[in-house]
Amino acid sequence: MRIKTVRTTVPTEVTRDGETYTINKTVDRKVVTVVDVHRIVRRAVTAVTVLVVAVALAWSVTSIGALLSIGAPTWVAYLAAGAFDLSWAVLMAAEWTMQYDDRARIPRVAGWLALAVSMTAIATEGQLHAGVWIGIIGAVISLLAKGLWTVMMMITEHPLSDVSRQIVQQKRSRASEELALTITDRELIRIRQETAALRESGSLTRVAWDAEGITRKALAETLADAIEDDAGPAGSGSRPQSAGSGSAPESVPLRSVPDPDHFAPQSGSIKELVGSVMAEGITDPAAVVREVQADRPDASAETIKRMVRLHRVNGS
């Protein structure tokens, strides 16, 4: 135990000319410090354990790599040797992070199994190249590293009673629930954004045609032009019949002029008026423009023609 002086600031009220101000005043305080021996020992054990694990990994990779290089290229053999040791090292780290979780038994058991496989490979390599005792000693290095890690976990772990363990498990469950809900909400937001983008892009089949640079207007105009090319010029009457088809019924001619007995202008939007006119068989754009403007003189001819093209494409 020792006493040291610590300089700090404290808020202090000062009155000048009848007014009170709050200033930060520098003061020296005597602080009693106690050396935490247990904390120093825990840090030393942790540092030494990590060092021993690193040495064990280096020795194991060298030994197993030399063993596997008998039947494989050198670089492949040493990569595979690294997989041997990293497996039990990763499992040790997983066991440490899950020390207050009931599932920690899984990485604990798997870690010992992976260590046994690694030690067997190290002993085999030593017996082939340097002698049986070299192989055994090399294998024991990995066992010492695993044992020190287990001791370090025992030092740093805080034992819990049965009640405390159940409380920790319930809090972990709530934290896991919040994490799962956050991930699910993020996916739901992304799906809704994609759905909204598809709807706003517009297309005949509710698919984002503009993903390929095709807008709804351009697609509608293209299809409308194709329909007009197939139908022929307005007012040309019925399509010519093929030879030998005299008994075939005549196709219905396109009407290019209004028939007052079948159509009566009605109020409504431009789209509704266009639909009503075309429902009566008037399909020529110029004729549709005249009929719609008879009821809506302020309607633009370009707007009416666009509605005609959309009506032909969508059928409504």
Rank of each mutant, 00 (worst) to 15 (best):
S69E: 14
E302F: 02
D17C: 01
I189V: 07
S87G: 11
M154I: 10
R2H: 04
G244E: 11
A196G: 08
P258C: 09
I134R: 05
E291N: 07
T150R: 02
A226D: 06
L57V: 13
M1N: 04
Q169R: 12
S316C: 10
S63C: 12
T15I: 08
Y78A: 12
T8N: 04
V34Y: 07
I304N: 04
S236L: 02
A93M: 14
I122S: 04
T62R: 14
D162Y: 05
Y78R: 08
S60E: 05
E250Y: 06
R108L: 08
A94W: 03
S269E: 06
S176N: 13
A279T: 04
R108C: 09
K305V: 15
S173H: 00
V274F: 00
T303W: 13
T33E: 13
L148F: 06
E221V: 13
H262Q: 13
I3F: 02
L310H: 13
V53S: 06
L273K: 05
E302N: 14
A114P: 03
W75P: 09
T9G: 04
I70Y: 12
A104N: 03
M92K: 08
R174I: 05
T33R: 01
W96N: 08
T184H: 12
R190M: 07
G235P: 09
F263N: 03
S245G: 02
S63M: 12
L179A: 11
H129Q: 03
M278D: 02
I227P: 03
T26Q: 11
E280S: 12
D261G: 06
G213W: 02
Q99R: 07
D28F: 04
A81C: 12
E228N: 03
V50L: 07
M152Y: 02
E302H: 07
Y78E: 01
G18T: 03
L310G: 06
K271L: 09
H129P: 00
T8L: 02
V163A: 14
I134V: 15
I214Y: 07
W133M: 13
A208K: 02
G82Y: 07
A83W: 12
S251W: 15
A93S: 00
V32N: 01
S161G: 15
D225Y: 05
A180C: 00
H129W: 04
R190E: 02
W149A: 04
V41T: 07
R186M: 11
Q193S: 11
L91D: 09
R255Q: 06
T303S: 15
G71A: 08
A175N: 09
E194P: 03
T205V: 08
I3R: 09
V6T: 14
A145L: 04
A44E: 08
A299L: 06
V10Y: 15
Q193D: 08
T62P: 05
E228H: 10
Y21E: 12
A226H: 09
V48W: 13
D101G: 07
I191C: 00
I227D: 13
D298P: 00
R216Q: 01
T195K: 08
A243Q: 07
R192I: 05
